[in-house]
Design a protein around this nucleic acid. Structure first.
Lengths: 383, 383
DNA sequence: TTTCGTTCGTAAGGTTTACTAACAAACATG
DNA sequence: CATGTTTGTTAGTAAACCTTACGAACGAAA
């Protein structure tokens, strides 16, 4: 009876919080569907036209919503005044720090479209030097914005806590780096820092359409995952959810990993390992056909290993949708085919609903767009 | 800024919803700590004394809260009137349908203590006959209640959806059995039906103390798991979360399972399999020492297999706490030792915080108590 | 013993919120 | 041209919390 309202009451609620909730609800509805009248919004949200009008006038006062003239449809009754989020009024800045050698940055529209992008070579910088590079790139990207900036979203590799402190990022040489707070200070803008794979899964969720629970596996220099259940990202007790790169696969040793263990997923699946293996196999092959077969075997085995790791996760969480992000020439073929086949043969997937595995449609901008989702969610409550 | 309130605004909120939230907040606080004054509650919840007084008088009107005289402490100021949940005013009925041959039922106090318990042999009943057995047991248990009944909680094996429909429970011969609705009709009481492992993890969470994310593995005739993340149970897209019994372990075949695959977790770990293997080994052993060693090996290997399945889940979710439920003579020893050792050696557990694995402290009543938690949560918003 | 400060619970009045009811404006249709 | 429909606004109401103020009951100190 009570739990139906799904509010887990851990905090008190005041009348003014109602306002915030309903305001966000209206903004959310408008963000998703766009071009609706006040009456439409009232019907869709369940609020009355009066309340919607009031909220809309507040939102228009903040330049978040604009009127776009009357609906042209020919109907009885007074014509509706169409509204939309003022999509040109603000822009979002995103950084992707997950590249092994190169940082990326972009200006995005409120819709998550990349308006202009920049890059900066890390050039081996670590620790404070790496921070300086990030700050430099951020300043560059900010300078390219052509509208007021709603906020800054950053996808960082490593373990990032809820306050945007990068607890541990080996590649950048960071330990307990309070990236969010520092950049917020230097820029004066709202900043959100999240793990790159978590950003990616948010992008896939918001822009990829389906409203399923989602596991995204990001294959790059390392292997990480982002997990979204019931519309919420899972961060983990120590903010290390998705760190599956150093979980051992299978019961037959496997290649030695940099971490000291044998048979880690990363030792099978990371881009450097795969390219090296393919390179070696190609060099050793007598004929092009031999090379092709060898490459197929390497990718299939990597895919199988990924499937073996994912099977218990898929079973335990009853996941129906898995998305891969990374170089398509490696992932999108024998590898993903082997993964999905392994998954199906090792779980009860057929019993509990069909399992889907696919490449992301977001391409290389996935982390940038996901970081933008964080900003939208934090600043507007919208996604 | 906005997302800080953590209300995902998918529905409108009205002023009266505030009341419900704060009422539940007060009740929750009182349920957890017990014996507090109105002023104490005001301090703890952040609400004013006025509002708390108002809510309390409402709750006292429903006989949910009672006054227990004045606090005996010697302090300046007017002495406080102590309040508590009226723990004797209501009782909860729970059923545990997960036994392979025997159904269990109990009357519980609002604190989750078992007041009286009953049982009924399934005697091989399936389908409608099994339903009749359940209804019969429920009527028996209801008759033993000595106070108004708050509700009925039922832990059922198999896949149970949010509406309490048992989608699939092979042992009971049920498919799409609307257990919750049917029993609600026959008894006129509020009924909640959940999967047995999910009930178990709720019990462990509510009565076990720690507020960690939690994975509970329930080993019985089959093997299932319940998962709790951020205080919420995970049900899965098709309500089959936790169904890890038929996930294949490792890359070396393993024993044939009833489901047709080889090396399913259940084929290694279920109670019938383990007892049979131990029986055979004991019969074949030349000396008692040999038998003991053989048993140790069997249990260790089973534990290792469990660890292999759990490692990816622990890594992906960054879990710190795993609880085992089942026969202690099988689980609590070589088996759990092997599991935790396997987990630590196959994940980065040491890097991301210490991993705990332990037996449940709830014993055999775990499902009954978990089902009671469902009722408390549904009827009072409390847990 | 009296006075003072403290704490508890309640009463009265104010603010915020969304609701209902009613209305004018603008349009299509018969 | 009258009628019905739809839109958005105005006015008034109900519910929820808050702030302010107060009496009651107690310990400590004069």
């Amino acid at each position: 009876m009570i739990q139906d309202r799904a509010l887990r009451p851990n905090t008190k609620v005041l009348p003014e919080h109602i306002r915030l909730n309903n305001r966000t609800l209206v903004l959310q509805t408008l963000y998703r569907t766009g071009l609706q009248s006040r009456a439409d919004l009232a019907r869709e949200t369940g609020l009355t036209r009066v309340t919607v009008s009031d909220l809309i006038s507040e939102l228009m006062g903040e330049n978040l919503v604009i009127e776009l003239g009357q609906r042209q449809e020919s109907r009885p009754g007074k014509p509706a005044t169409l509204l939309d989020i003022n999509r040109a009024a603000f822009q979002i800045i995103s950084l992707d720090l997950s590249g092994h050698t190169r940082l990326r940055g972009a200006v995005l529209s409120l819709d998550g479209a990349v308006l202009s992008s920049s890059g900066l070579d890390l050039a081996g910088a670590r620790g404070e030097a790496a921070f300086d590079k990030v700050a430099e790139l951020l300043a560059q990207v900010i300078a390219r914005a052509t509208a007021p900036i709603l906020g800054v979203g950053i996808g960082s590799p490593g373990i990032v806590d809820r306050a945007g402190v990068v607890r541990n990022a080996p590649n950048l040489g960071w330990r307990d780096q309070p990236l969010q707070a520092r950049l917020q200070d230097t820029t004066g803008l709202p900043v959100r820092v999240v793990n790159d794979a978590n950003a990616a899964v948010l992008a896939e969720h918001s822009f990829g359409g389906a409203d399923h629970d989602l596991l995204l596996v990001k294959v790059g220099h390392g292997v990480g995952a982002g997990l979204l259940i019931g519309g919420r990202a899972i961060f983990g007790e120590r903010f290390a959810a998705g760190e599956i790169g150093h979980v051992v696969v299978g019961t037959d040793d496997g290649p030695l990993c940099a971490c000291g263990k044998s048979g880690c997923l990363e030792a099978w699946l990371s881009v450097p390992r795969l390219t090296a293996a393919i390179h070696d196999a190609t060099a050793a092959a007598a004929t092009p056909a031999d090379a092709e077969r060898a490459i197929f075997d390497i990718l299939s085995e990597a895919g199988r290993r990924l499937g073996i790791i994912l099977a218990p996760v898929v079973g335990a969480l009853n996941l129906l949708e898995i998305v891969l992000s990374g170089p398509p020439e490696l992932l999108d073929g024998a590898l993903s085919a082997a993964t999905v086949e392994t998954l199906r043969s090792r779980t009860m997937a057929t019993e509990t609903g069909d399992l889907t595995l696919r490449m992301t449609a977001q391409g290389e901008d996935i982390v940038l767009r996901g970081a933008a989702v964080m900003v939208l969610s934090a600043q507007l409550g919208v996604s």
